[in-house]
Amino acid sequence: MSPSQIAYSESDQHTAEVPYRVHFYENCSQSPASRLVPQATIEIDEIDGQGFHDRTHASPIFTGPCVAAIDEDGRAIGFIIYDCDEESWNITLSYVVPEHRRKGINTALFYALCDKAIEQGNVFSIDSGTHAKNLAAQAAFEARGRTKEFIEYTFRLKDEVVVEEPTAEEMRMPEYLVERFDTGSDSLKFMQAFLNKKAAEGYELHQAIERSTYQWVLIFRKA
């Protein structure tokens, strides 16, 4: 790997199960993350447009800059590819391999990207988009402090496959919930009681994002 392929900075991160390093690359196609791009695009296509909103118009070969999580064996386990405009950066593709999801890797990559943009000085926002039905992505975006700026409408020229209508019970019960939770200084036992309460209401924990020592953002998914 040549120095020209690695841009700016790198830092060490870890989860409870896997250590990794955060690397910035000037060209994703020349980085370890490039091997994950086909896998990422296939998964997004398989869920029928519930990934990033402009994937159908994007090339499967990404040559823009990226930030990636690299494990001890030098393999990418997650990445964010982005475009750099003068005053805003746009996330074009974001992905974490299935076995390492819900471990805060995408969150760490996003905040590393934010730090880099702040360091550059002239960037005012980092923008991203997702499908209107991808409530999990929307919940994760909002948990990280992203705000909804606009809604895009599409006029379909061809019929799509008819999706089965949700039941009345499903309509009453949102698919995802975002809850902010403070564990206090004693222990995590209060969080476990809260999780048990949500489980009784029909929700399972989808992702836990630590905002500070005792403050968490919990994303629940309908069980």
Rank of each mutant, 00 (worst) to 15 (best):
I118E: 15
I118P: 10
I118G: 14
Q120S: 15
Q120K: 15
Q120P: 08
G121D: 01
N122S: 15
V123Y: 00
F124Y: 14
S125E: 10
I126Y: 06
D127H: 07
D127T: 05
D127P: 09
D127G: 07
D127N: 12
G129Y: 08
G129R: 07
G129P: 03
T130Q: 04
T130A: 05
T130N: 00
T130M: 03
T130W: 06
T130R: 01
H131F: 07
H131M: 08
H131K: 05
H131T: 03
A132V: 11
K133N: 14
K133T: 11
K133A: 13
N134E: 04
N134T: 00
L135C: 07
L135V: 09
L135N: 09
A136R: 04
A137F: 06
Q138C: 04
Q138I: 11
A139T: 06
A139R: 05
A139C: 06
F141D: 07
F141A: 08
F141T: 06
A143S: 15
A143D: 04
R144E: 14
G145H: 01
G145C: 03
G145D: 00
R146Q: 14
R146A: 13
T147F: 13
T147C: 12
K148C: 13
E149R: 13
E149P: 03
F150L: 13
I151Y: 06
I151E: 11
I151P: 00
I151C: 09
E152L: 09
E152F: 01
E152K: 10
E152W: 00
Y153M: 05
T154N: 06
T154G: 02
F155Y: 10
F155A: 09
R156V: 00
L157S: 01
L157W: 02
L157C: 05
D159C: 07
D159E: 13
D159Y: 02
E160L: 09
E160H: 10
V161H: 11
V161R: 14
V162R: 12
V162E: 14
V162D: 14
V163A: 13
V163T: 14
V163C: 08
V163K: 13
E164P: 03
E164S: 11
E164C: 08
E165L: 11
E165N: 09
P166V: 04
P166F: 12
P166Q: 10
T167I: 05
T167E: 02
T167S: 12
E169P: 08
E169Y: 06
E169G: 07
E170V: 04
E170S: 06
M173E: 10
M173V: 12
P174L: 05
P174T: 07
E175L: 11
E175K: 12
Y176S: 03
Y176H: 07
Y176P: 00
L177Y: 02
L177N: 03
V178F: 08
E179A: 09
E179W: 08
E179C: 10
E179N: 08
E179Q: 11
E179D: 13
R180F: 15
F181K: 00
F181Y: 10
F181W: 05
D182S: 11
D182T: 07
G184H: 06
